[in-house]
Design a protein around this nucleic acid. Structure first.
Length: 428
RNA sequence: GCCCCGAUAGUGUAGCGGCCUAUCAUACAGGCCUGUCGAGCCUGUGACGUGGGUUCAAAUCCCGCUCGGGGCGCCA
């Protein structure tokens, strides 16, 4: 029976065990050879002596990254550095790897990110890359659990759509039989329709597509969006839901993977809500007091956000954004009609989430379309849901890759994406 | 879309008009070696993105193209 390598320590010294994995390292000394074998949980030394296995010659000539099955005796008093080894008495070569490798898994040379992405299947064999996606998986599990406990219904809305979500031109067109369709840039409109349907609380984890020609370390043309929408709710309520969901899932993932993460050079800080809330206009003033020249209505430049993140390290909300910077479905503020009941969640200098109280009144929504210069006829399927009993609602959308990137302090969002899609990359 | 920058063995680099028959590391192949663990030692294989131009001479200078990186706009 197969043992995963991280379980070896739980077994008794001298037991006969079997592992499956990749040959990561080979050290040869004529009639003795050491293989470091890796699976997705860790790696261990396998010691092979010429009189112990019958196919010694072929094992002696095995290439790195070949796949093998090893049976042998566990020696927990090994003089190897880890103190543990497996004394092999049978090794089956399941598949050999060609040489040389397109890139090394443990080589002592740098590899360009482009080369790594071109050979992502090998790149992901590196434990420090695999852990990013283990972390993402745990994080998402925690968020699901949190949402579930709070009575959210997980939904899946269409990704092939007929109309623009926010009226922009940043969509990928697709041919849908005889019609022109698009890849959805956000589940926004469908989440809102479900509020009218009485689902009350929904969340969705799914892809979002943006045909924007950015070329930055924080943009992807396909990313994973975690979205919620909540009826009979307001912006403050969904902000609390957000900070609590993040705190719960991050702290949970860290308690499970923290040790492994630390061993691979990542460290996660404990997340403690509530997060600071700063109004947009406060931030404009703060920046202008510090040498920036911003007007009300301007968006913050990356440089400005870097400056702000020196003051607010960690998570913080920027609230009450001007109307012009927000989509048509955003609820204006009751007291100041120039601003909206909206928020962005920042982690240091990067935006990871944005949300708002939404407009639920049909006439107000119609006006908003006009103000934004959008043709409401293109949104008939959406706007109809507002005529026959739409409850007040609020929600947000959280960028999964960006969240993981920032939590782990990665320098590029592509690091937290298995197979990134960007301005020039469509493969693998 | 705009602005910078880059492209040399499988990988990562040095070289930036003639000392280049191109450096070093790593990988790979072969050899020595019964306890390695960044194993060590010896031998070997392997590269100037592409098309023009300048020059007696181009990896090196100039122009186009292709591919890539970073920044900005924008945003998750």
């Amino acid at each position: 029976m197969r043992t995963y390598i991280n379980n070896i320590n739980n077994l008794e010294d001298g037991s006969i065990i079997e592992i499956d994995g990749w040959v990561q390292e080979i050290r040869k000394i004529k009639k003795l050879l050491f293989l470091i074998v890796r699976d997705n949980t860790g790696s261990v030394q396998v010691t092979v002596k010429d009189n112990m296995v019958k196919n010694y010659d072929s094992i002696y000539n095995i290439s790195r990254e070949s796949v093998i099955k090893v049976s042998g005796k566990l020696n927990k008093k090994s003089i190897s550095k880890s103190g543990v080894e497996i004394l092999a008495n049978e090794i089956i070569i399941l598949n050999t790897a060609e040489t040389p490798l397109p890139m090394g898994v443990i080589d002592l040379v740098d590899v360009d990110f482009d080369t790594r992405l071109n050979n992502r299947f090998i790149d992901l064999r590196k434990p420090e890359n695999l852990i990013i996606f283990k972390f993402e998986s745990e994080l998402l599990f925690g968020i699901r659990e949190y949402m579930n406990k709070n009575n959210f219904i997980e939904v899946h809305t269409p990704k092939i759509v007929a109309a623009a979500t926010e009226g922009g031109a940043d969509l990928f067109p697709v041919q849908y039989f005889e019609k022109r369709a698009y890849l959805n840039q956000s589940p926004q409109l469908y989440k809102e329709i479900l509020m009218s349907s009485g689902f009350d609380r929904v969340f969705e984890v799914g892809p979002a597509f943006r045909a924007e020609k950015e070329n930055t370390v924080r943009h992807l043309n396909e990313f994973t969006s975690i979205d919620i929408e909540m009826s009979f709710s307001d912006d403050e309520t969904v902000m609390r839901m957000l900070e609590n969901a993040i705190a719960y899932s991050v702290n949970r993932a860290d308690s499970i993977l923290g040790k492994e993460l630390k061993g691979l050079g990542y460290s996660i800080e404990e997340v403690r809500p509530p997060f600071p809330r700063i109004e947009y206009s406060e931030l404009i003033n703060y920046l202008n007091d510090n040498g920036f020249k911003l007007n009300f209505g301007d968006d913050f430049s990356p440089e400005a956000m870097k400056f702000v993140s020196k003051k607010y390290n960690g998570f913080y909300f920027i609230t009450k954004w001007p109307k012009d910077l927000r989509p048509f479905y955003t609820m204006p503020d009751d007291t100041n009609r120039n601003v909206t009941r909206s928020f962005d969640l920042q982690l240091r200098d990067i935006e990871v989430c944005s949300g708002a109280q939404r407009i639920h009144d049909y006439n107000m929504l119609e006006n908003s379309f006009n103000e934004k210069g959008l043709n409401k006829n293109n949104f008939e399927f959406y706007i109809k849901a507002f005529k026959y009993g739409m409850p007040p609602h609020a929600g947000w959308g959280l960028g999964l890759e960006r969240l993981v990137m920032n939590l782990l302090n990665l320098s590029n969002v592509r690091e937290s994406t298995l197979f990134p899609r960007d301005r020039s990359r469509l493969s693998p």
